[in-house]
Amino acid sequence: MESTSKPDGPDGSILELPVTAPREIRKSTKLADVCYDIRGPVLKEAQRLEEEGHKILKLNIGNPAPFGFEAPEEILVDVIRNLPTAQGYCDSKGLYPARKAVMQYCQELQIPDVEIDDIYIGNGV
């Protein structure tokens, strides 16, 4: 078998493709106006300093766990107990008991006329 790196043209001649540098892969222009400085250049510098071995005191995001605010144990137990049966996808709007709990919370808050179908569970803030 004869091997060739260049494709044959329709008349059997060898096509010469223009030689260009590989294309740079760029982010979507839709991201141009996205303002998310919490994860911006200052954070990048913080990560660089940490890699150099500096200890940075992070007063930048509301992430309770690293500061010793741990979840109530009861919550962890519920997740652990249900883990074996939580392997598949669920209803796209969320598990029924979770949505029911949110619905009851809305009743407590006196938000009128909230039904199960008015509630969408998502991946959090």
Binding site: I75, D78, A86, Y89, C90, S92, A101, N123
Partner: peptide, 16 residues
């Protein structure tokens, strides 16, 4: 498809 499933089991206990 859906949100993360295991942690949805925490909602009922959390809110009640």
């Amino acid at each position: 498809l859906c949100a993360n499933v295991p942690s949805q089991h925490a909602v009922q206990t959390a809110l009640g």
